[in-house]
């Protein structure tokens, strides 16, 4: 079946071909594995999310919308699993480095080091429209220490509340806030260096 006729010509075959689904599934498993730190739980969550989501995917005219929809369902499943762990007191403690970028970014008296001072970001609102920006964003996320990355993603991607995160993992509120601070320092620095100070793209 041909895909001609423009974006409003909705057919399952166009949107949900094997290549698209394969790529989608890979991204989902990667996302879920990072959050759950458990391969088989991640696979299960992805499977359930896909089955649930694709029942309605025929309503979407754009692949990006399908992806958003599927990931929303996946995130809900992941959140459910994390909450369930907390209720069953299966707290998972987080190994990983805590190293503090603040040691490097600020001087002895607590001021920004000259070369690390944040400069203005030109048009952050338009950055989000660039595919290249999102690749850089992913690179910067990958550059975070695992513990900081995981906490940052739970807070900012899954949008869990602080106390939910603390209940499901063995981390105190104050430690969580320290980790989030460190993640933000690093992420901001990375985006600054690799995107915003590189000039117009």
């Amino acid at each position: 079946m041909s895909g001609q006729g423009g974006a409003l010509n909705v057919t399952d075959n166009d949107l949900l071909d094997e290549q698209f689904l394969g790529q989608l599934r890979r991204q989902m498993v990667q996302f879920a594995r990072m959050q759950l730190q458990d391969e088989s739980l991640a696979e299960d969550a992805v499977q359930e999310a896909l089955i649930g989501a694709l029942q309605n995917a025929g309503s979407f005219a754009r692949r990006a919308a399908v992806k958003t929809w599927v990931f929303a369902i996946l995130k809900n499943k992941i959140v459910d699993i994390i909450r369930q762990r907390a209720r069953m007191a299966e707290g998972v403690s987080l190994p990983g480095e805590d190293d503090d970028p603040g040691e490097r970014l600020f001087d002895q008296s607590g001021h920004w080091n000259k070369e690390d001072r944040p400069n203005r970001w030109a048009e952050p609102d338009t950055a989000v429209k660039s595919e290249h920006f999102w690749r850089v964003f992913e690179v910067c996320l990958d550059g975070l220490p695992v513990k900081q990355a995981r906490l940052f993603m739970m807070r900012e991607f899954l949008e869990l509340e602080s106390d939910e995160i603390c209940n499901s993992l063995e981390v105190s509120t104050s430690n969580l806030h320290v980790m989030l601070f460190r993640a933000r320092l690093r992420l901001r620095e990375c985006l600054d260096k690799r995107w915003f100070q590189e000039g117009e793209r």
């Binding site: 790529q23 989608l24 996302f31 992806k67 990931f71 660039s130 940052f152 985006l191």
Partner: peptide, 14 residues
């Protein structure tokens, strides 16, 4: 950015 990213994980996908 994080919210945007998590709601549309692969901007290149479409």
């Amino acid at each position: 950015f994080a919210r945007h990213f998590s709601r549309q994980p692969d901007a290149a996908g479409d």
